[in-house]
Simulated assay, not measured.
Amino acid sequence: MIQRFLAPHRTVAAGMLGRLARRAAVCALAFGIAGAHAQETSSIVIKGKDGWLFPGWGSLTQVDVRGIDNTTRLIGQARDLLAARGIKLEVLLLPDKTLFYEDRLPDGQTLSPEVKARYGLILCKLGQAGISTFDDAAVLRQLKASGQEVFYRTDQHWTQASADATAEAMARMIGRDVAKLDGRPGTGMTLGPLFNERRYGDLAELFLTADEKKQVGREVYSVRRQAESSNLVDDAPAPVHVTGHSMVQPYFGFPQKLSSLIGRPVSVNWNPGNVGPWIVLLEYVESPAFRQQRPQVLVWQMFEPTFAQGPDASGLWDNASIMSANAWLDRLKTALSH
């Protein structure tokens, strides 16, 4: 997919590694997950009760602790490289849809205790490594408790309400971590009203037959319009950049809401989930946009079910995205040195 950069006004040393390994062990013990497990094979889409669909690329029973450790270590190295160039890394860890709708899974399919604890385990390891993040699962649980849906029924993506609530939590974290944002206050995006559109979710559209699609039906999506007061030709630099998969694409509203909250432009690049977070970050730091204007804050969106899959996860990412961890790190170093 072509890179997308949205400014809202426009559309480790050995000793350190040893300490991280010991801290990771503490997290695993605390969450009762005592070993590394390979990901089990699953179908592309899980057909649940009452027309609910779930992406099938995360295990319902097993947790790859070793992969989580490796990913955390690599993120920590990226954090240090970015920090050396004055860029603050903030990790946005999005939880799995099944955590919120386990009761809609097919009969006989449930989440194991280890998988239920996986999100907390990853948060613990990120915290032990000193990587800035927050508990988005808790944010979304509170939203669901208020009676709002946090994911669409036939789609892998979150709702507008979830994107807004997560943007609020992210804005608070940036406010805590960054004393003063660059740019002129009040240049964030002016949000327009919400409107509804009725269509099939992506899991239904992409993976179901015509008859199956009719059975699950369309659903209503809430989408925020562009405010008429927004200046579409304003070239103000964005001190915050968001990189990730399709959850953070402008359609679902996260970057626009974040821009409005911090009062500054926010840029974003994203690609489908099968490309993976590793190549998407490289696409940004290797781009002319990054070379021309480096952000003060880089928000890197990761996804709980695939967090354990490093840049070398052959057969899981798109073939063009596969590379060794060392090759990925070398490309990041090269991009940052320009």
Rank of each mutant, 00 (worst) to 15 (best):
V242I: 13
A204E: 03
K213T: 04
T209G: 07
S222L: 01
H241L: 08
G192N: 04
P239V: 12
V242W: 04
V242S: 11
F252V: 04
T209E: 04
Y221T: 04
S259C: 09
G201M: 05
V216P: 03
F195Y: 03
D235W: 10
L232T: 14
D234W: 02
Y221F: 11
F195R: 08
S230P: 11
P239N: 15
F254Q: 09
L232N: 11
H241Y: 07
A204Q: 05
P193R: 15
G201A: 08
V242N: 08
K213E: 07
Y200S: 09
E212K: 09
E205D: 15
E212I: 09
S230M: 13
D211H: 13
T187E: 00
Q215S: 08
L191V: 12
Q256G: 10
L258K: 03
G201Q: 00
L191Y: 00
S259P: 06
R218C: 01
A227F: 01
V242C: 10
A227T: 02
Q256C: 06
P239W: 14
G201C: 07
D235L: 14
V233Y: 13
R218Q: 09
V216N: 12
R224N: 07
G188I: 10
G186K: 05
S229D: 14
F195G: 09
V216R: 13
G253N: 04
L191S: 07
P237W: 00
G188W: 07
G186V: 12
